[in-house]
Design a protein around this nucleic acid. Structure first.
Length: 502
RNA sequence: GGGCCCGUAGCUCAGCGGUAGAGCAGUGGACUUUUAAUCCAUCGGUCCUCGGUUCGAAUCCGAGCGGGCUCACCA
């Protein structure tokens, strides 16, 4: 074919010729029926040929030109309909030569059924309502290149029905989650993205700069510490669905920004939260997918019907790895164990980090069916309340399914003295170079000192939840616009003119 | 960041040391119920980039850029 430049030029020329007859980009169009409604109306009318007049709009997906007549297909969000153009019925029939695949048309006509049985609009008037300058992906070959699919998601959505389905289901999942909390009397709130301290999770934050204040801010890595301040302020049930940012590697399961749900309920504990999580996840699955059994091609079948399996952190590690972490109380002992088990450990990793590595290696991949892991080591959970009878363990659980973490929850630590001590400890680790340790957040501590009621808190990675429910293995598939490396643009047509020289 | 794999026409892909190919899309023509319309003709390429080996490189080698998978870290 002509080079991309020539294709572009041909379409620019067509645009110019269309402009002579009218505006190929009108602000207002006539649409009496969607494509699906038009077909339904024809069927409902008893299929009297010529009796139902409609105006439909949509993008041209196929052209079958036959000289003095032509069939085109247009598609809108509801489906597709065939159009029949006859030279003897249309004053501007010849302008069809200015129409390319991908252009948007407005077509008025009456409905009939062709002899091959397809409901079709016999056009009595038509015009271009958006001229397209670049070709869309080939209708039959489709668009497969993963990079183009991610970088130009609009093309992916047009070419791959599955992408549209995932994006739609994601939106429905988020709506269903919101509805779940609102129905339970939670208030949806918004907290700052730009923060003095990025706390509430173990992760490296992004930094940014405020020019007028001439100071740096961190982008939040969690929602936790601000939502808890609201409990101090008298709210009893709050939640937020928000984007958080973590300055870490990009992979099929990590994006630098992702969507986090967090909820806090005063006077509840982590057992209450666990029951709520079962109701939430099974309820959302029921609402969005129509059932709690997940059957996806590339992943094992999963049942999200409550109750979910339960075990404890210690029991799970003993069961799946034969390791009782209480036998390895020092960093040295645990590091030696990790080495024996061929679990790679970063230089200078803390006891908690090593333990987490063992857990990730030996236990998490085995948790295919939804499973709660209760009672985490205190060292891993600086914001969770200790168990009354065991100060080395906190009232915390995580929910796993398909081998990855779905939810994280605890009975919130509300003893300001204990919280201060643990933050001091974290800050010390930080000073030793652990840049994922919690930083001191004096404002948060002062809030706690004013009294935060006992509360159960929950965090759910929405992207992971969407992965679970859609059966998508890659995070990139459930994000409309995943982070990618910067690619130098070749500059095609930014200015409406393609680059010189193909 | 490490390992493995990939990069050829707008799209989907062949070719893998000897003149750069196919289908679709485009352009011109025929065709008034086609539907992956059909038929005839035709245009179209820094074979990712740079360097090397060779009489000769899309093909072999090295480096770089981009991508995919995977490991590490995390959600």
């Amino acid at each position: 074919m002509p080079s991309e430049h020539e294709l572009f030029q041909q379409r620019l020329d067509k645009r110019a010729r269309l402009l002579e007859a009218g505006d190929p980009y009108p602000a207002r169009v006539r649409r009496t029926h969607t494509t699906a409604e038009a077909i339904a109306a024809f069927v409902a009318s008893g299929e009297a040929e010529g009796a139902v007049e409609v105006s439909v709009v949509g993008r041209v997906t196929a052209q079958r030109m036959m000289g003095k007549a032509a069939f085109l297909d247009v598609r809108d969000a509801t489906g597709r309909i065939q159009l029949h153009f006859r030279r003897d019925a249309l004053a501007n029939y010849e302008d069809l030569s200015l129409v390319d695949l991908g252009d948007f048309l407005e077509v008025t006509g009456t409905l009939f059924r062709t002899r091959t049985g397809e409901v079709t609009v016999a056009a009595t008037a038509w015009r271009v309502i958006t001229k397209t300058l670049l070709p869309l992906p080939d209708q039959w070959a489709g668009l497969k290149d993963p990079e183009t699919r991610a970088r130009q998601r609009y093309l992916d959505l047009l070419a791959n029905e599955r992408s549209m389905t995932i994006a739609t289901q994601r939106a429905q999942i988020v709506s269903a989650v919101r509805r779940f909390f609102l129905n339970r009397g939670f208030l949806e709130v918004e907290t700052p993205v730009l923060q003095d301290q990025a706390g509430g999770a173990a992760a490296r934050p992004f930094t940014t700069h405020h020019n007028a204040l001439d100071r740096d801010f961190f982008l939040r890595i969690s929602l936790e510490l601000h939502l808890k301040r609201l409990l101090v302020g008298g709210f009893e049930k709050v939640f937020e669905v928000g984007r958080v940012f973590r300055n870490e590697g990009v992979s099929f399961r990590h994006n630098p920004e992702f969507t986090l749900l967090e909820s806090y309920e005063a006077y509840a504990d982590y057992e209450d939260v666990a029951r709520m999580v079962e109701a939430l996840i099974s309820g959302v699955a029921l609402e969005v997918l129509g059932g709690t059994n997940l059957v996806h091609a590339d992943s094992p079948d999963v049942s999200l019907a409550p109750p979910f399996a339960r075990t404890t952190y210690r029991a799970a590690l003993i069961e799946h790895a034969g390791i009782d972490y209480r036998d390895y109380p020092t960093t040295e002992a645990l590091a030696a164990l990790a080495h024996d088990r061929r679990v790679p450990i970063a230089e200078g990793a803390s006891w908690g980090t090593i333990l987490d590595a063992l857990m990730s290696t030996f236990v998490e991949p085995k948790l295919i069916q939804p499973t709660f892991i209760f009672d985490y080591p205190t060292a891993l959970s600086p914001l969770a309340k200790k168990k009354v009878d065991d100060p080395d363990t906190v009232e915390r659980f995580e929910l796993f399914a398909l081998g990855y973490e779905i939810a994280n929850a605890y009975s919130e630590l509300n003893d300001p003295v204990d919280q201060r001590a643990r933050m001091v400890e974290q800050a010390a680790k930080r000073a030793e170079g652990d840049d994922e340790a919690e930083s001191m957040d004096e404002d948060f501590l002062i809030a706690l000192e004013h009294g935060m009621p006992p509360a159960g808190g929950l965090g759910i990675g929405i992207d992971r939840l969407v992965q679970l429910l859609t059966g998508e293995h890659s995070l990139r598939e459930v994000l409309l616009f995943p982070a990618l490396r910067e690619r130098p643009r070749d500059g095609t047509n930014i200015e409406g003119t393609p680059p010189e020289g193909q």
